[in-house]
Nucleic acid binder design. Structure first.
Lengths: 264, 264
DNA sequence: TCGGCTTAGATGTCTGACAACGACGCATTA
DNA sequence: TAATGCGTCGTTGTCAGACATCTAAGCCGA
């Protein structure tokens, strides 16, 4: 109806990039970014598929493949014979179906991320950890423990656990101090895995459950003992299902509003 | 590797059906069912796309469209130049990304569903409810309240809230008693909406948070006061984003293990 | 024994065409 | 006048065939 505001910053996509990702995937990423940053408003009707294809410099099949993925994720809605529209309320970063890190979650809520109690150690993997990461019990893992802040306020207690074997560089082991420095600066485990280890996180599986804060956790989160916190235990995988990281996150109640898009 | 066990009950798909769904969607449903009931085991390599297309009696583009959707949902994994495989651990019904009802959730855990405290009333919508359902505050809604059992054990307290306007039949209003009888028998709100109202639930959006059980809830769930319960508030939509039902679910801690597939 | 080349088979992309659907306008009819 | 039916047009869905690109595996030679 109010399609009178036509912003269309569709960028041409070049196939020469040795991105190792597929063309359709790059189209998805571009459109998803445009939607999530609000450049394409809700209910806005996209150009039809042939036009979109030429605008993006790809074929219609590639565009259709990308649109199928976006539709499945709840970003757009397609109506046969009518057109393709941005969803009424497309997913945001507090949508659990999107595997964004805590840093991005905090930023998207309009707050500035920070941390206290930054701690990084190496220790042998427990039975449970080893099982989740598909490594041998007792194999060394790097543990990163953080209490994380949004605008100075404690919102989540994080535990990132990675197999030490991941940090094997061609020249040997990356020193812990270097990792620590990087993360202190960029605040993100995800970007470290991608930029320094050259591994791409393809998807994650998160177990979710409520938990009653006992003494230790209550102190970490600075909440009354006995409060209900949300526990998110997540394993992140590479594209070929190799476990890259195990993450334990304990969220202060009502710090964020999480939701999930459930397709029938 | 161990593709020596080749089960292939792919059924030919006929286009003559006036299903109103697309062909690709029907392919998705068939394959998803085969995967979830275990007919296609994890890591099993599917036939290549042209063969699958002829087996299903559709074109390769349709198959590819379906496979894209299944891949996005974590059911299969495609490797360029290699083949298409069932995922190592494909989603099950306790995956929150799949919009299955509580009945199916209980059944899939191997338990027999039941209920106590079955209660059905009509009342005016509160501000919050009206907002969620996109109706006027004070408009009548049908409320279904159930304490639900898995093998006689209390697992969840459910509140289903539907706009009364939905029950307007061509011959007038469907009597509450008839609805009640149907649900007592089939135990499922979802199938009622589909079979009796002719509306199809296309997707849902669920807000998830931990909650401390106060006196009322503790009694309903027969747990100690102060326990942490999981609260799932969900709105189900039709394909054109019309809100059909609002559902409040309060889960007994550790009754189910929920997880989420998070794609990056 | 190792390394590079070739080849076969799979998914990814492109092109062009037609089918099916939905909104809209218009003429017809009660 | 208002409701109804029909045709047109634009869009998404499906089909067909071809080629590109990637992977794994086998072959061959150094």
């Amino acid at each position: 109806m109010d399609n009178t505001t036509p912003p269309q910053p569709f960028k041409r996509i070049f196939g020469d990039a040795n991105d190792s990702t597929t063309l359709a995937q790059r189209v998805v990423e571009q459109l998803r970014a445009l939607i999530m940053e609000g450049a394409l408003p809700p209910e806005y009707q996209l150009p039809n598929e042939p036009d979109l294809a030429t605008a993006l410099n790809v074929s219609r099949s590639t565009v259709r493949s990308a649109l199928t993925i976006l539709e499945q994720g709840g970003f757009i809605q397609r109506r046969w014979g009518v057109g393709t529209f941005i969803a009424k309320s497309p997913p945001t970063y507090n949508n659990l179906s999107i595997n964004s890190g805590v840093t991005q979650l905090i930023r998207s809520s309009g707050a500035e991320p920070g941390h206290t109690e930054f701690l990084m150690v190496t220790r042998p993997a427990s039975e449970h950890v080893a099982n989740r990461l598909s490594i041998e019990p007792g194999a060394p893992v790097v543990v990163l423990e953080r209490v994380r802040l949004a605008n100075q306020r404690i919102v989540v207690f994080c535990l990132d656990i990675l197999p030490q074997a991941l940090f094997q560089n061609s020249t040997g082991m990356i020193p812990l101090a270097e990792i620590e420095e990087y993360i202190r600066e960029n605040q993100s485990m995800y970007t470290f895995i991608r930029e320094r280890l050259g591994k791409e996180i393809h998807h994650g599986i998160a177990w979710i459950r409520p938990l009653t804060a006992e003494a230790y956790l209550a102190e970490k989160l600075a909440i009354p003992r006995g409060s209900s916190v949300l526990h998110l235990e997540q394993v992140d995988f590479s594209v070929d299902e190799e476990p890259l990281a195990l993450t334990d996150e304990y969220y202060v109640p009502d710090a964020f509003t999480f939701y999930i898009y459930r397709s029938s």
